[in-house]
Design a binder for these strands. Structure first.
Lengths: 254, 254
DNA sequence: CAGACAGCCTGACGTCGCGTCAGGGTCAAG
DNA sequence: CTTGACCCTGACGCGACGTCAGGCTGTCTG
C-alpha cells in the first residue's frame, strides 16, 4: 500500500506544503519516488508522520522531533509512553486554565477582583504551588482519583457487590445512631465516621482525615449527595457530615 | 499600582521582548511612560494582557486577538465565556489524543495494527465523525454531560428525591418483568426501556436512542453498573441492557 | 562623586513553520 | 488529444517572537 502526497495530506489532516517541508528538512521522507518524481509514501512513512504530528501538537520544534525519532535507543513504545505523559500534562494545564477562567467568572459575578498574582498563576512555568492546589480541587484529575481508577479497574462484579454492601452497612448503622439520639459528635458516631473513612481508603483511594472532612462538607453542600442520605433517613446527611468532620478534627488533634 | 516591563514579564510568565512586541503592534500598550521613556503598566493593562495570553494560548493570531478585544460590543464576561468554551473544546481534543495514544499502545501490546484511517482520525479538522464518537465515549467531557451539569445544578433536594424515586420505580418494574418471565426484547420490556430513556432526557440530558444503546452496553460491560443492577435482582443487568438495545433498534427502525 | 551593575530603551536582523504564488510536468477520463 | 486534477521545484512572505548591538537610567557602593 502506498500514498501520494495529496492522499496522505488528506488522511493526516495536513497540507501538501507541510509534507513538502518535512521532506525538505528530512523529517518525513517518502521511502520512494515514482519514475516521474512523484513522492510515494508507504506504511512506515505513515508511522513516522503520526509520531511527528503528536510531537508537533505538543509544541516540540521540528528539529528536536527529528532527533527524538532518530534516536536509535528510543523504541516506538518509549515514544508512546512519553507522548502519553506529555499529553496528560497538557490536559492538566488546560484543566487548570479552565479552572482559572471559572474562578475569574465567579469573582466577577461576586464583585471580587483577584490579585495580579492569582490572575497570572496559570501562565507561569506550570509548577507554582498555588496551581497545584487548584488542580487538586478538581476531582477527576487528582491523584486520589487516579488511584481509585487503578484500583477499581481490577475489581470484579463480586467485589463491587461486597463494597456496596459494606457501604450500606455503615450507612444503616449511622441511621440507627441518629434514630437512637446518639449525638453526631459523640465518640460512637465518630467511630462510625472513622470506619467510613477506612472503607474508602481500603476500597478506593488513600483518604486522610482532611480529605474526608472535605467529603463530609460535600454531603450537605451538594444536593445529589444530600438526597442520597436524606432518602435513607431525614437529617442523615447533616448527621454524617457532622460526624465525619468531628472525627477528622479528633484525629488531627489527637 | 504600576509595573515595569521586567516586573510584568516575570509576573505574567512572558519575556520582555514579547511585551515590547505587543506594544509595537498596539496589542498591549502601557498606559503610561515615565519621563525617561520607561514603560509603566497599570491594572487595566494587566487585565488586557491576561485576556491576550488566554487567546494566544488558544492559538489565535495576535491580530485577531486585537480585533476581538477592541470590539466594543464584546464585554469582559463575553470573552470569559468564549474562552471557557474554547478551553473545553481543547480539553476534548487533548482527551481524544490521549485516547488515541492509549489505543495505539494497546494495539501494539496485542500485536494488532491499526488502519491508517484510525491512526490519523484525531488529527483531522477535529470534526471527523469517528473522533466525535470516540469523544462521546469518554464521559465527563461530552455535550450531554455539560447539559446534565447545567440542568442538575438547578435541582433542589426535593427534585433529587423525586428523580431518584422515579428511577427506582422503573428499575422495580424491570425487575418484576424479569421475574414474570417477560422476554427482554418483548414490546412490554421495550416500553419500559423507552420510559427509562425519556426519564434520562427529561432529568439529565437529551438521550437519543443511539446514546441510550451505548448506556445499555455499559450496563453489562462496566462492573460498577452491573453490580448496581445485580443487587436488585440477579440477571437484571443483562435484562435491562437487552431491553434498552432492543428498544433503540425498534425506534431507529420504525 | 565615580563607577559598577542591573534594568530600560530602540533598531535591526534571524528563525521556525509553514502559506502562497509562479512556472511547468503527469496522468486518467472523456 | 484536450481538459482538469494532481504533481514537481524554486522562491518569496509572514507571524511571533529570539537575539544581538549600541546606548540611556537609576541605584547602590566604595
Amino acid at each position: 500500500m502506498s500514498w501520494t502526497v495529496g492522499e496522505l495530506a488528506r488522511l493526516a489532516g495536513v497540507t501538501v506544503r507541510t509534507l513538502h517541508h518535512y521532506d525538505r528538512i528530512g523529517l518525513v521522507r517518502p521511502s520512494e519516488r515514482t519514475s516521474a518524481g512523484y513522492r510515494s509514501y508507504d506504511l512506515r512513512d505513515l508511522d513516522r508522520l503520526q509520531q511527528v504530528l503528536v510531537y508537533r501538537e505538543l509544541g516540540f520544534p521540528l528539529e528536536e522531533v527529528a532527533t527524538l525519532l532518530d534516536d536509535p535507543d528510543a523504541d516506538p513504545a518509549a515514544h508512546l509512553r512519553r507522548q502519553h505523559r506529555l499529553l496528560r500534562e497538557r490536559l492538566e494545564r488546560t484543566q487548570a486554565m479552565v479552572a482559572a477562567v471559572e474562578k475569574e467568572m465567579e469573582a466577577r459575578q461576586m464583585g471580587i477582583s483577584l490579585t495580579p498574582e492569582e490572575r497570572f498563576e496559570v501562565f507561569g512555568d506550570g509548577f507554582s504551588e498555588e496551581y497545584q492546589a487548584e488542580a487538586e480541587e478538581r476531582w477527576c484529575d487528582t491523584e486520589a482519583w487516579a488511584q481509585s481508577q487503578r484500583r477499581t479497574s481490577a475489581y470484579t462484579k463480586d467485589d463491587w457487590v461486597r463494597i456496596k454492601a459494606e457501604g450500606e452497612d455503615v450507612e444503616r448503622r449511622f441511621a440507627a445512631a441518629l434514630a437512637d439520639g446518639v449525638p453526631a459528635d459523640s465518640p460512637a458516631a465518630m467511630d462510625l465516621a472513622e470506619e467510613h473513612r477506612q472503607q474508602i481508603s481500603r476500597n478506593f483511594y488513600d483518604c486522610p482525615p482532611e480529605m474526608h472532612a472535605g467529603l463530609g462538607r460535600m454531603y450537605v453542600e451538594d444536593e445529589r449527595f444530600t438526597a442520597h442520605y436524606e432518602q435513607i433517613a431525614p437529617g442523615l446527611a447533616e448527621y454524617v457530615s457532622t460526624a465525619v468532620q468531628a472525627n477528622a478534627a479528633r484525629r488531627s488533634a489527637g
